[in-house]
């Protein structure tokens, strides 16, 4: 047959999307920095019991507020001790667990809620879309911090309560972004083709639409993770987040603030780690957006 001859002339050119992605990932410094820092903090959180030199809860009232080594302290407490004589480095290490747990689970819960709502609104349109848009507007009309404060004040602060409150409050951006991404993709002809092939609605959504909008989803996940971590710190700082003696970075800043004028490092150390964590997550999100966007153009 001559048919084959026609197209053999045109070669298949260029790398696969996977190869292109790999190349862009390794050429993106912000992304690599974000991944490295976040990965490091994740390892620290997982292996906290192995890494921490002391029990983060153990008080030693004879060794209160010892300065870190770089301010003349001893290697016994590399980052000094707090007002109850607890080892600051150990509390910082265990605090990474709290921040990452809250960031991760709050983003997971709000991501599930927001993605389900947004994708349903974008795919089905009509009444579903109207209902979801209404819920988004209701949610946007609520001030997150005030609502979180009120709920925590009523139910008491604990890790679980903070995770649930943030998870059920931070889904709006997921819903908005997933709705518009779905709207954009659902009118592509490959979606129509899948429908004409006889794919079920769930298959069309999971197998045809989701892979093409998951990059936007990941970007929102990182944004909301950072958002949740900062909100937890703010709530804990106000005394309405996780409760003492849990080692949370926000709580450490709060506990250090009375002594801030005399021992500024008590606030600076957890403040800087919080800043670095949020920066790393944001760089990761930005990088992912940069790296995955070019594919959408073709």
């Amino acid at each position: 047959m001559t048919r084959t001859a026609d197209t053999l002339l045109e070669e298949i050119q260029g790398p696969t999307p996977g190869q292109m992605l790999r190349k862009r990932v390794f050429g993106h410094q912000g992304l690599l920095f974000g991944v490295a820092v976040l990965g490091l903090l994740l390892l620290v959180a997982i292996f906290a019991p192995l890494l921490a030199p002391h029990d983060p809860y153990a008080q030693d009232l004879l060794a209160r507020m010892q300065p870190p080594v770089f301010l003349g302290g001893s290697w016994e407490h590399p980052l000094g001790t707090d007002h109850l004589g607890r080892d600051y480095l150990s509390r910082l290490i265990y605090g990474a667990r709290i921040s990452l747990l809250i960031g991760g689970f709050a983003a997971l819960i709000s991501g599930l809620i927001g993605t389900a709502m947004g994708v349903a609104a974008g795919y089905f349109g009509g009444r579903v879309d109207m209902a979801v848009t209404f819920l988004i507007n209701v949610r946007l009309a609520m001030p997150v911090v005030l609502v979180a404060l009120a709920i925590v004040a009523v139910f008491g602060g604990s890790l679980q309560v903070v995770i649930l409150v943030l998870g059920f409050l931070l889904w709006d951006r997921f819903a908005v972004v997933m709705r518009s991404s779905t709207l954009q993709v659902r009118s592509r002809e490959y979606v129509t083709a899948a429908q004409a092939i006889g794919c079920s609605t769930s298959r069309v959504i999971l197998s045809e639409i989701m892979p093409n909008i998951v990059n936007n989803l990941i970007v929102v996940v990182t944004l909301e993770m950072a958002h949740a971590i900062l909100l937890e710190a703010a709530l804990s700082f106000l005394g309405l987040g996780v409760q003492p003696p849990t080692p949370s970075w926000g709580l450490m800043v709060s506990e250090g603030k009375q002594m801030m004028l005399f021992e500024p490092w008590l606030v600076a150390i957890p403040g800087i780690t919080l800043f670095v964590l949020v920066l790393a997550i944001n760089l990761l999100g930005d990088g992912l957006r940069d790296v995955t966007a070019p594919e959408n153009r073709s």
Partner: peptide
Amino acid sequence: RLLARRIQPIFQDPYSSLNPR
């Protein structure tokens, strides 16, 4: 699903009709 086995489409824009992923 039965209909899908008897009638199939070919669309206009081959840049949009194939899932890029």
